[in-house]
C-alpha cells in the first residue's frame, strides 16, 4: 500500500493473539515486521511482515467471518506456502524449536522439491519447500502417472 514494492498478491492471516503470532512467525520463519500500528489502547490495528519479496499481514479476528483456526476447531481454508532456496531441513528444525508442530517431516517429492508441513501455535498450516532437483515433465508423468501441463 502506497509502496511500489508491494506484491500483487499477499495473504492476511487471522489470529486470536496477533502479537504472539508476530513473535512466533519471526522466531520460526525469520519473517521481519515491516509495519505495525497500535492504537491508543495498545491494540494492534494493522501489521505486515516481509519475507523475501513477499508480504504477509498478521491480524486479529476482525469480523464475524474472520477466524483463527483456534476458534473453529483447527480448520484451515487456505494455507500459505513458503518457497526457500537453501536448507529446508534446517528451516524445519527452526520451526520445531519455535514450538510449531511438524505435521509431515521433510521429504523429497517426485517434482523435485523437498517439502515439509507444519502447524503454528494457533493452528494455521504452513507448507515449506526447497527445489533440490530439476525434473522434466516427462519424468514426473512417468513417476506419478499424472498428466502434467504448464511445467516449464
Amino acid at each position: 500500500m502506497a509502496d511500489a514494492n508491494f506484491p500483487s498478491l499477499s495473504s492476511a492471516v487471522c489470529y486470536v493473539d496477533p502479537r504472539a503470532a508476530l513473535a512466533f512467525l519471526e522466531q520460526a520463519f525469520g519473517f521481519e515486521i515491516s509495519m505495525l500500528i497500535e492504537d491508543g489502547a495498545g491494540n494492534i490495528a494493522h501489521s505486515e511482515m516481509r519475507f523475501g519479496s513477499s508480504v504477509v499481514m498478521v491480524g486479529n479476528e476482525w469480523s464475524a467471518d474472520h477466524k483463527s483456526p483456534r476458534s473453529i476447531g483447527g480448520k484451515n481454508t487456505q494455507t500459505v506456502h513458503i518457497q526457500i532456496e537453501t536448507d529446508v531441513d534446517a528451516h524445519c528444525e527452526r520451526a520445531r524449536a519455535a514450538g510449531f508442530e511438524i505435521i509431515v517431516e521433510p521429504e523429497t517429492q517426485f517434482y523435485g522439491d523437498r517439502t515439509y508441513r507444519c502447524r503454528d501455535p494457533e493452528g494455521h498450516i504452513w507448507t515449506v519447500a526447497q527445489t533440490v532437483a530439476t525434473v522434466s515433465a516427462a519424468e514426473m508423468e512417468a513417476e506419478s502417472g499424472l498428466k502434467i501441463t504448464g511445467w516449464a
Binding site: I33, M35, L36, E38, D39, G40, A41
Partner: peptide
C-alpha cells in the same frame, strides 16, 4: 498507553 506506528525497511 500511547499509539505507535512502526515501519521497517532494509
Amino acid at each position: 498507553m500511547t499509539s505507535k506506528v512502526y515501519v521497517a525497511l532494509r
